[in-house]
Amino acid sequence: MEGSQAGIKLEGSKNWNVWKFQTMVVLRGHGLLDVVEGREVKPEAAGTAAEAWASKDAKAQTFLVTRMTEEVMLHIITCSSSADMWKKLASVYEQKTETSVHIVQQRFFQYKYEEGIEMAVFLSKVQEMKNQLKQMNEDISDKLVITKVLMSLPEDFSHFISAWESAPDDKQTYDNLVARLLVEEVRIKEKRSESNQSSAFMAKRFDKKSVKCYRCNKLGHFQSECHSKVDNQNSASSSVNNRHQNFNNSNRKCFYCNKVGHFKSECRFNKNKNNGNAFVVQETFNEHFQQSQWLVDSGASEHIVAVVEQ
């Protein structure tokens, strides 16, 4: 048989289902599957038919033994026909006990999508376990497989799940789910790539190596992050003193009376300023005191006279 050396090698139970599927397809294509599965038996009478069957069986045996490891081959080393080999392999790797069915079902429902795994690999693994259960006469519906897949997806697919649940029932097929998940995987990867590029740009843009602290004048940190032992209070006092030196009396100008030597808030002619203290004048009226005459010009914005007669 041409190409008998190509294809997957049977390594044991871990790849039995995939190997069996591929092997059955190839054997069917070469007209040998009926011989391997025992539906076409060896004729009892010798003749052309018996010789044709023997030729098919020899080709099938060659195909089987060249597609398995030496460890697997030990199980069929005593078999005399391809049908015996196939039946022996099935008995070893397809144990249909209640315990084995329970183990596969548990593995199916516990299987989760993990970060870093390709979506196609995850979906193929789910489908493989479904097929394995089907071979054990424990068929699982596509609707249950869809529910299992959706429950296994991480938080990144939350919007996809919401969109899927709002889709029409006739569109919620397993094949449609597979196609849309593969597209969604590409979209999420592109979004992550853009986010990583943006973060890298921001980190490069705000590199603290070029940042200068205005407290200690050193590079590498902001003033709010400075661990210098400089006393904040002394720094504040120094700043006030510097401002006081820059704005001494000779430079100060009042914007109310346009005179130098004081600020507008200190101007005694400014009636709108807030004075914290009151200037009180007490005097006793007599016949010599004239009401139109002030004793002191305090500069107050308002004047109150209390007349006390004696």
Rank of each mutant, 00 (worst) to 15 (best):
G7H: 00
G7R: 03
F21H: 14
H30D: 12
H30G: 05
V35G: 02
R39L: 07
E40H: 11
V41P: 00
K42F: 01
A45Y: 03
W53C: 04
A54I: 08
A54F: 05
Q61V: 01
M68V: 01
T69S: 11
M73K: 10
H75R: 04
T78F: 15
C79P: 00
S80M: 09
S80D: 06
S82R: 01
D84G: 07
M85F: 01
S91H: 15
V92G: 01
Y93V: 03
E94R: 10
T97A: 03
V101W: 02
V104P: 00
Y111T: 11
Y111Q: 11
I117M: 12
L123E: 09
V126G: 03
N131H: 14
N137L: 05
S141F: 05
V149W: 01
F157S: 07
S158T: 14
F160P: 00
A163Q: 11
W164Q: 00
E165L: 08
D169F: 02
Y174C: 04
N176M: 08
A179T: 11
L181G: 00
L182H: 08
K191N: 08
R192Y: 08
N196S: 09
Q197H: 07
S198M: 12
A200H: 15
F201D: 10
M202V: 10
R215C: 12
C216A: 06
N217G: 05
K218E: 15
V230W: 03
N234L: 13
S238T: 11
S239D: 13
V240I: 14
N241K: 14
H244P: 02
S250G: 05
S250Y: 05
R252S: 03
F255C: 05
Y256A: 03
C257A: 03
N270M: 03
N270V: 07
N270W: 00
K271P: 04
K273L: 10
V280D: 07
V280R: 13
F285Y: 08
N286R: 08
Q291A: 09
Q291R: 13
S292V: 06
S292L: 07
W294D: 15
W294T: 08
L295D: 07
L295C: 12
V307N: 06
V307K: 05
E309Q: 14
